[in-house]
Design a protein around this nucleic acid. Sequence first.
DNA 1: GCCTGTTGTTCAAGTAGTTGAACGCCTCCG
DNA 2: CGGAGGCGTTCAACTACTTGAACAACAGGC
Lengths: 361, 361
Amino acid sequence: MAGSQVPRLKDVAAKANVSLSAASRILRGERERFGAETCNRVIDAARALGWRRNLLVNGMQTGRTRTIGVMIPPFDSFWVDVLAGIHLVLAQADYLPITVWVGDCQEMPHFEKDEDEGFKQISRLLDRRVDGLILWPSFAVAYYDHFRELLERRVPVVVIDHEYSEDQIADSIETDEAASARAVAEHLINLGHERIACLSAREAAWQAWSVRRRECFVQVVEDLGGGEVKCWRLNAWGTDGLEAARDILSQSPRPTAVFAVTDHEAVFLYEAAAELGLRIPQDVSIVGFADLDFAATLRPPLTTMRQRPREYGRRAAQLILDRLDGDMADSPPTTIRLGADLIVRKSTSRPAAESARDRDD
Amino acid sequence: MAGSQVPRLKDVAAKANVSLSAASRILRGERERFGAETCNRVIDAARALGWRRNLLVNGMQTGRTRTIGVMIPPFDSFWVDVLAGIHLVLAQADYLPITVWVGDCQEMPHFEKDEDEGFKQISRLLDRRVDGLILWPSFAVAYYDHFRELLERRVPVVVIDHEYSEDQIADSIETDEAASARAVAEHLINLGHERIACLSAREAAWQAWSVRRRECFVQVVEDLGGGEVKCWRLNAWGTDGLEAARDILSQSPRPTAVFAVTDHEAVFLYEAAAELGLRIPQDVSIVGFADLDFAATLRPPLTTMRQRPREYGRRAAQLILDRLDGDMADSPPTTIRLGADLIVRKSTSRPAAESARDRDD
DNA sequence: GCCTGTTGTTCAAGTAGTTGAACGCCTCCG
DNA sequence: CGGAGGCGTTCAACTACTTGAACAACAGGC
């Protein structure tokens, strides 16, 4: 087997002693025209030689590669689960995702650093003729023009957690921010909290969800009569989480509860609380968002909104498949909004009585 | 632009008013034969139409798709970092990884559940004519025969953390278990520990590293005069981590230090210690392995061996590239062994004096 | 007027199949 | 003996280019 190369269909045909086109038809499943014995001979020959279909050829001929581009880094457990959902659905449909991102997947922005590399990654996907594209928010914003071009070529695009506000040009899967904010607000207000703060992430254009989450929360707390929510947000580089957390917890009077727009920001609050000698939840209640893998193992375990990231991925993949060969092919862009569930753990409780707080001060 | 399809080279040629072959040659960089003005006309036309090279065609013609199959789930932060390393190196070489796994990426085995699906995933990669393959251990074992076939087709294969012991048929990147075990053993013995236990993972065929890690540790402790190491391991399904940890910490006399072959197992020891009211490190020292993302945030922060997973990924990708078009094309399989660094945090200390331990009992 | 060089063309074959149409051959049935 | 199936073949066109070779048109220099 020294010089053995990839077996071609003509090798199979020769071995089975049939014509090239007979081999092609039989292996593609068009068997009515052929005898059972011949079919078996061809199939056995293919197996013996280790022949397999060539999706490159298929792709050239049909314009479909059965491959979906996915621009999502495995940034944290939320996005890993989104990826898992995508993989699952695509595998069932005999598709394959090609996942790319830019630079170090531990850094949030994923494009600012090397915009050119971002273009190259998109190009690598398009050069391989992916049938569709699934994006996480920052790419959706950064390469907006590029994706318009794709849409004109009828390549379906789905965006997760980002809505193209003006002209909604692509499908999107989002979080139901209003309902989620309400769940958090009700939880805190029912516990008796009145001085509530909010720590938002960096509110770049590609983190519109962060803005919406904060705004919804502020609104709902006001609607429920919970008073005014004081807001903090991370700076443009997202580097001052700990400082912001310290600042929040050093206010006088100190907020009795803080809502962090993701569990990542909640961790800064845990750290700042530890520094300042504040106990969670006795001195301050903390609520996170996402229920990332570490949320349950924080001390105390974090009360947070559990999203269903796998569902995000599944829906995104299904949407692409529907647009590719379903009846949805030509319907206008849709937005799917997914809910989240409040998981009450140990980081929230009734606020301490005022007298106790005064003593602490 | 309603009916606009993917632009073809002949569209570009028509627009630039040159022949098809001239357009092809110019866009491929063969410009000596053409005037500067013509080159610009073609390039401008290509840009205006949004034309891009078709790697499917390239793949058919050259047999190279500039695509590498990667069978590694983003199982934990170690594997996510491995993936990041692979992506980085491949992107620099204008290659793209296609990452697949089987089923839910949160489950360890990744093939036992649905072996057939595993074959399908491999097939999906091969049908797309990937130029090479990078594997994590469980796949390497489960589909051994399949990979032999690949190697005969001269598709390079690199395995991470698994060595095909008998006939080393593929390159592999491994951890230097001997040196790492020595670092852990010396640390514990220098602190004065004498009763040391080891908690190993499930020792399936595809976790040979777990066996080697345990064996090396036992050997080194003995060599250093640290006495006999008592060993526990998880059951075949990996489901009894907490029970095993409880059992270890309920021994009498209790071990003063436990080495967990990964940080995952260390977590079970933390939980069992909490249940039993034992303090870490006062009552028992714990050492992990891998320095996973949660290791530093455990309470107390975990002493562990820091691997360099990104380096694993980089080396694996580089190895593939070297075999594809380097001088290494025909050299025999190599094994690269990477070291790890001891990170001393707060989960290890001198053992309590015997009297103190008696009191605790 | 001839040679050379520049610039570009056409032709044909190659990559690995896929697919519609027409056709050929054999057997069986009436 | 003719017609109908059943079984399989050949032919040609198609996917989107790539590439070597031969050739042609034109300009400039000698």
